[in-house]
Design a protein around this nucleic acid. Structure first.
Lengths: 235, 235
DNA sequence: GCGGTGGGGTACGTTTGCGTACAGATTTTA
DNA sequence: TAAAATCTGTACGCAAACGTACCCCACCGC
């Protein structure tokens, strides 16, 4: 797909930069580890840094007044954490939490704004990603309203599998329940259904995808919809 | 709030233009009626026009593969229909449907892109609105997952009341059920609860808000969250 | 090796909302 | 004015998911 044989960076957005543009950027960026569960951007706090994942993934989480949480979007190396900044807001009510450990490229908000301001095509690419994220969140709204826990769980596993690039996913039932905004026991039962059908195997804090196509069948149309639109826009 | 005593236009975004900028735009725009239920932008079709409501409102709707529908966002005179275009996409999977009759200013996609390209502060204002819409949709995702039909209905009535600026809303139970993605009878029951508490009165295809604060109490925190963020960003 | 902690399996009654259906009332159309 | 369409109220059984609780097991640190 990439015309350049070796993209300058694993992150798809930064990877689209020319070698020169990326080199110019390099003194301004920082390679950071994304340890599991770390909160990189807290809702309603001023956004100080943006993150371009190279591996692993972030969850966009909304924390409610009673402390309960629910995920509204996933961001992997196809995107970046900091869309509100791009759109002119200095903060948003969503948290960004590391959902799968990995590495990311970070830069300060000021640097980010300067870079975006000076590179039109890069900016346009980021905006297109913002649209992708918007579609993803829209579809999550639909999914939460209409689909069952097993369907939503299957969708979620697929999205995570895509971004992590490996079948073993480090996920406890409780964590999954926070993400989907459902009961922990609901996750247990749904995973048992999947295991019985041979779609996944489970271990302590671990879910391993065994039949990708099987999981796809168990998921609702939302997965396909988001994938289709994402590909159409940024493939 | 507005420093200019008479904004050039009822739509908040176009209204922020200087008199000169708006005058320059005037030959390129069209004032259109928004008749109830009319679909102005069909999902996955190329977006040919954008719309800036001056009164009335649009719903952003997702139509599923089985034909069922659900709303993910509302757009009134604080915003515009055509965010995907602004972000560089020529289409999005969402439909835009007139949910409250009114008037809008329309322009072609080409004109829109030209205007946006030539007016930086206007563009920034639109981007900020895109962020608002994004927050609204995010909160809808949360709301759909966690809140009851009466809570969501109350929220929806408030959002509509805000945008229509009048207590009588033309809404049938069936239409509301499409919007919230729930059963028609569920709406009937919820409205009866509201009526019993004196929050609203109902008539054939009509809901009239009687106690604004009562409806606010019946709604979930989502209404407040979105309102707070919207004000913070574009007030 | 032992106790503590966190993860997972299971159960039970309850609530919410679904799907469906039907009848009466009102409005629109012929 | 009659017929048709639309809107609302109501009902019933059923499924999904909830809140809660308890137990066991695996793993970790001491």
């Amino acid at each position: 797909m990439a015309s350049n044989p070796a993209p300058v960076c694993d992150n798809a957005l930064l990877g689209s930069l020319t070698r020169e543009a990326f080199a110019a950027l390099e003194p301004l960026i920082e390679y950071v580890e994304m340890p599991l569960k770390k909160v990189f951007s807290k809702g309603s706090k001023t956004i100080k840094h943006v993150f371009f994942p190279c591996s692993g993934m972030f969850s966009l989480i909304r924390t409610m007044e009673d402390g309960s949480t629910i995920e509204v979007g996933l961001i992997g190396k196809e995107g970046f954490v900091g869309v509100p900044l791009l759109l002119g807001a200095s903060a948003s009510p969503l948290d960004a939490l590391v959902q799968g450990a990995g590495k990311a490229i970070s830069m300060s908000a000021a640097t980010f704004l300067k870079v975006v301001d000076g590179n039109r095509s890069f900016r346009n690419r980021l905006l297109l990603y913002a649209q992708c994220l918007h579609i993803q969140v829209s579809q999550t709204a639909v999914c939460n309203a209409r689909h069952t826990v097993p369907q939503r769980l299957a969708r979620w596993i697929l999205e995570t599998h895509d971004r992590m690039g490996q079948p073993e996913l480090s996920l406890s039932h409780e964590f999954l329940s926070y993400m989907l905004g459902v009961r922990r026991a609901g996750i247990t039962v749904a995973l048992q259904q999947f295991t019985a059908k041979g779609l996944v195997t489970t271990g302590r804090s671990k879910v391993t995808v065994r039949s990708r196509t099987g999981v796809e069948k168990a998921a609702c149309e939302c997965y396909r919809t988001v994938q289709r639109e994402t590909r159409r826009l940024i493939a």
